[in-house]
Nucleic acid binder design. Structure first.
Lengths: 188, 188
DNA sequence: ACGTTTGATGACAGTGACTGACATCGATCG
DNA sequence: CGATCGATGTCAGTCACTGTCATCAAACGT
């Protein structure tokens, strides 16, 4: 046994999500989060750069998964097919985390600062994917455009997945969105 | 003549852009911006909600222009063609503001908080355009996907316009990006 | 076994963004 | 000419976030 309770980060993240859900993001102070986790405010900031970041612990995992899937697509796959492989992987990741995803989405959706943070995480993901596509030989601006278009599919698909009641899987919804994107762009 | 110097907002915006350029966003305090504009910190916050917002005075103008162009596209235009009309209008808006756009972009690009704010402004623009497309009879998720894809074209085109040395117009670059997007999505 | 080092945490003071409440005062209205 | 208004100033206060030093259990080395 250590001198302190283990899983400090998770305890902070759990306390934060609870408090943000119960009383709202703005009405929660970092000191309260720390106190619920049995820690001090200073320790919170040793684990998370700021009050928003505590909701985005999974970003790195998602990025790694996405990038691996895109990089691992067959060499013969088109850019958009590689992107689709990434979307499938992301869909699988969230498959059994829907309740958590919904609660987290509700908190983020209710606050502009948190939406900003969410957007920059997706933009960072897009940048990483564009780089991976370039590694696959895709030229600019095709790489960035493919990544950004894929993020659009992810965003719209994710919101629909959260909004409905489990009728369709996230992967299925993203496939539909990708198909619809092909329709509206009415490509080559 | 009023009791105070006129154009308070513009003076604050000018002072802020100057100081953010000279010393960086983080190294500038709101009190310094206010002082350079001949005002107090409290007055700054009466005109701008926060330290970031002072760089985004033009967002509303861009949104109005964009939405008007999309709404005004011929009824026979496809969603993506209506979107293209909005991109053209935006391209025209920036045409004679390139030096200002570059300076502002450099400031925003150098700071994560400012990039976050930029992203939420573009997301808000996307939402407004999606609504306009729905008013034109476009169903979901096609409306949101078209708007998001259009934003991707705007983003990538804009960055290239800032990066190069005036060889091509913003409108021309966005047309190229839109064409490239059609290629990569390899649509219907 | 025992002194040393390490690493996570606590304690505390400080900065700066942002807010609420109240005072000021030239311009405008009746 | 007095009442009102609107933009600003003044000031106190909260809270996010940071730097610095103290603490102390555990792991390590001898």
């Amino acid at each position: 046994m250590g001198r302190w309770e283990p899983n400090t980060r998770q305890r902070l993240a759990k306390a934060a999500l609870e408090l943000y859900s119960e009383r709202g993001y703005e009405q929660t102070t970092v000191a309260e989060i720390a106190r619920r986790a049995g820690l001090t405010e200073r320790t919170f900031f040793r684990h998370y750069a700021d009050k928003r970041e505590v909701l985005f612990d999974g970003s790195e995992e998602l990025r790694a998964l996405f990038v691996t899937a895109v990089a691992g697509a067959p060499g013969s796959a088109t850019p958009i097919d590689a992107m689709a492989a990434g979307l499938e992987a992301a869909g699988d990741l969230f498959h059994d985390r829907r309740p958590f995803a919904r609660q987290r989405y509700a908190v983020i959706d209710a606050n502009a600062e948190l939406r900003e943070r969410e957007l920059i995480k997706l933009a960072s993901l897009s940048t990483a994917i564009a780089e991976t596509l370039r590694d696959r030989g895709v030229e600019e601006p095709a790489a960035s455009l493919t990544a950004e278009a894929g993020m659009a599919v992810f965003k719209v698909g994710f919101e629909r997945w959260i909004a409905e009641n489990g009728e369709r899987t996230l992967s299925a919804l993203m496939r539909e969105c990708l198909s619809e994107l092909r329709n509206v762009t009415g490509g080559a």
